[in-house]
Design a protein around this nucleic acid. Structure first.
Lengths: 186, 186
DNA sequence: ACCTGAACACCGTTCAAGT
DNA sequence: ACCTGAACACCGTTCAAGT
């Protein structure tokens, strides 16, 4: 049970988070933390107190995502579509979410296999969502033998990262089709 | 025809490059440029004169890679292996090369589709090497219809980027197998 | 033509002083 | 307990002075 925050602390915490969401949307997750503090109207020390690392700040913003990503996974399963369509839809939704802020995808790639990262837990939640989709299709015998959910997650996150990093805004669909063909039973 | 460099300029240029290779190998391509200048025994302005951006410096170091990557592609084709083995070997060699310095893979992902990047030309050379392997297999009817070499390049670079970014040193093999299965004719 | 190194701007991080 | 803002360290970039 975390004890409740003092009123002014809670106010600053929320203000920083709201500002970070705006700034990260505008200029990506590598924006100046100083600017976020300034625009939130707090001292740099206050931001640092609440979020000791940039990853901690990104992590706090990811809360919404993980919820939606989880919901998307279950929604995909519920459609009952054939494997190819289900996976393509799920992957595209997943990528849409984790590329909401520029630079986030590659941070997720890094955090995914790093238990020391503040973002690790949320990466696991998303990994479990993906695991449900993969398991569902695997149980239906629709996948190649030996497909590993964790590797699928890494691959799709990699695609997201490439699309996110790319200067041109390229279509992820063709890449996802290759991945899907590599997963579903031929 | 670029006019020859003055002797002292050439000496500094080479010294900076040699030092950068060492530092990038030790700490990756996001190391401090200041440190490179110091260890090379030149002023920061000298480094900046020869390499106006970090990408220009990485680009200069990539020369060796593109040569080897090109050679590897032709060597892979020459083996005459079946599609799966040939692609796996080629991809692994390619990844080994572009992850030689940490952070290089993601820079390559970014430069690949950005003609304004100093690294663009060398990315194209590597893309052409990959194109030769893909074309060779496609001509032999070993690939799925509609496989696009540029997308394969992006995917494999993405895998490299994920492996490079990852805190754990994970095996790229399982991911590459998925990609290969998505490319070769079922 | 090229090099040097001081100077500048920017940014993350710390911490003493204040409430 | 929390905030502020000055101070610090670090780094990329510029440029005047020198050869």
């Amino acid at each position: 049970m975390p004890r409740p925050m003092r009123a002014d602390a809670k106010r600053n915490y929320d203000k920083i988070l709201a500002t970070a969401r705006i700034v990260f949307t505008e200029r990506g997750t590598d924006s100046s933390l100083d600017e976020i503090a300034k625009r939130a109207g707090v001292g740099p020390g206050t931001l640092y107190r609440h979020f000791p690392t940039r990853e901690a700040l990104v992590d706090a913003l990811m809360q919404d995502w993980t919820d939606r990503v989880s919901a998307d996974a279950d929604a995909a399963i519920a459609t009952g579509q054939p494997a190819r369509e289900m996976l393509l839809g799920w992957f595209e939704h997943f990528i849409d979410h984790i590329t909401l802020h520029r630079g986030a995808a590659s941070k997720i790639c890094a955090a995914m296999d790093d238990p020391a990262s503040p973002m690790y837990r949320k990466c696991r939640v998303m990994g479990e969502a993906n695991g449900r989709v993969i398991d569902h299709l695997d149980a239906g015998g629709q996948l190649r033998p030996g497909v590993d959910a964790a590797n699928v997650m890494r691959l799709v996150s990699g695609v997201a990262s490439v699309a996110d990093t790319s200067h041109a805004d390229l279509d992820v669909r063709p890449m996802l089709e290759v991945v899907v063909d590599g997963i579903v039973r031929g």
